Simulated scan of single mutants.
Amino acid sequence: MKMHGFLCFSFSRIFSRKGSRSSSSNNSSDAKSRMSNSDQDSQVKSGGTDASARHRFDEQGRRYHNRPDAAYMLPNDDEEIDRVHMQHWVIKIAFQGNFHAPVEQQLEDGIVVLDGGCGPGTWSLEMAENFPRSKFYGVDISGVFPSEIKPANCDFQVHNVSQPLPFAPSYFDYVFQRMLVLGIMREEWDTVLSNYMEVLKPGGWLELTEVNIPDSVNAGPKLTILMETLGEVAAQKGLQPGVSSELGKKLKKAGAINIHCRRIEVPMHHDGKLGSLLWEDFVTAFRGLIKPFVTKKHPELEDDAVYLKFVEDAGKECEEYQNYIIFYRAFGQKPTTST
C-alpha cells in the first residue's frame, strides 16, 4: 500500500487530534477558535465570499452546511475532515481494498474516474498515486479537498451530485461513490445514480459502498438506542438510512447490468485497531448530532456528563456483546450501445 505526502500527513493528523475529538467541546474559546479557522478556510477555498451565508455553527462551534441543496447531516469542518480520512482506512481495511469493480487492469493502463461525494478526497488521492496513468476527478458539495498539494492526475471541484454533473455524457470509465447514506435525500437516490450513468461510458462500471443504519449484529440495549435514534433522525430529515441493502436494486433500476453485491460485518469497539477506529467514526454522531433526540425520549440523560457516560458505556457494551456493523458494496456495468 502506497501512502505518500498528503495521505501520510492526513492519517497521522487523525491520531494527533484524537484527544480533542474525544473530549467535550464546551470550552467557548475552543469553539470560537474553530469558528474563526473554519471561516477563514472557507473564504480561501471559495474566493473570499461570505462564509456565514454558506455555513452555520452549533453551540460547540462545529461547522455545518447552510445551503438548501445540501442534505449532509454531519459537520464539514476540520474535525469532520479528520473523521472522513479515518473512515477511508476503516473501509479499505474492512473490504480489503479500495474497490471491487473489475477495473484494476484498466486503471493500470489509464482511464478516467469520477469520485462522487469525494469529501476531502482521500480515496481519489490514494488511487491517483497508485494508478498514475489514470485521471481522477472528485466532486463534493463542500470544497474541503486539497487545491494544490495533490497528484497531477487528480482534480476536484465543488458540485452537488444530485444535480446534473458538469461533465460530458459518456466521459468516465469508472464512477465510485461511498458513504452518502447521510448525504442523499430518499427521493434523490435514483436521480444521483441516473446522473452517474449519464456520464459513464457504455461498458463502464459504477460502484457504491454504504453502511447499514440502524441494524447491526449483536447490538446491546444502549447501542440500539443510539443507532435507532440516528436512523430516526435521518429518516425525519428525508434521508434513506436503510439504503445500503438496496444498492443492487437501485443499480438495476438505473439500468446497470452484471451487478454484484457484497455484505460484510465489521467489529465495533473490539477485535483490535479496526474496531476502535470504527467506534471513533460513529461516536461523532452519537456525542453531538443525535443527543437532543436521545434525551427527548430519555430525559434522564439530559446532563452532558451523564449523556457522555452513556455513550462511553455503549462503546464498552459493543465489546461485551461483540457487536458488528454491516456494510454493503455493490457495482454494476453500463450496457454497451449494442446491448
Score class of each variant (00 low, 15 high):
Lys2Arg: 12
His4Ala: 11
His4Val: 13
Leu7Val: 14
Leu7Asp: 02
Ser12Met: 10
Ser25Ala: 13
Asn27Arg: 09
Asp30Glu: 14
Asp41Arg: 15
Asp41Gly: 10
Val44Gln: 14
Thr49Leu: 13
Asp50Tyr: 09
Arg54Pro: 01
Arg62Ile: 09
Arg63Met: 11
His65Tyr: 11
Tyr72Pro: 07
His85Ile: 11
Trp89Arg: 10
Lys92Phe: 09
Gln96Ala: 13
Phe99Leu: 10
Val103Arg: 05
Leu107Met: 10
Asp109Ala: 15
Gly110Leu: 07
Val113Glu: 02
Val113Gln: 07
Gly116His: 03
Trp123Asn: 00
Met127Trp: 02
Ala128Lys: 02
Arg133His: 15
Lys135Asp: 09
Val144Asp: 01
Pro146Gln: 04
Glu148Gly: 08
Lys150Ser: 06
Cys154Gln: 03
Gln157Ala: 11
Ser162Asn: 13
Pro164Met: 04
Tyr171Asn: 10
Val175Pro: 01
Gln177Asp: 01
Arg178Ala: 09
Leu200Glu: 02
Lys201Glu: 00
Pro202Tyr: 04
Pro214Gln: 04
Lys222Trp: 05
Lys222Phe: 04
Thr224Leu: 04
Ile225Ser: 01
Leu226Lys: 02
Glu228Cys: 12
Leu230Pro: 00
Glu232Arg: 14
Ala235Tyr: 05
Lys237Ala: 12
Lys237Asp: 07
Gln240Ile: 00
Val243Ala: 03
Ser245Ala: 15
Glu246Leu: 14
Leu247Asp: 01
Gly248Phe: 01
Gly248Ile: 07
Gly248Ser: 09
Lys250Gly: 05
Lys253His: 13
Gly255Val: 03
Gly255Phe: 08
Arg262Lys: 14
Phe282Glu: 03
Phe282Ser: 01
Ile290Thr: 00
Val294Trp: 02
Val294Cys: 03
Lys296Pro: 00
Lys297Asp: 08
Lys309Ala: 11
Val311Lys: 02
Arg329Tyr: 00
Arg329Asn: 08
Thr339Leu: 10
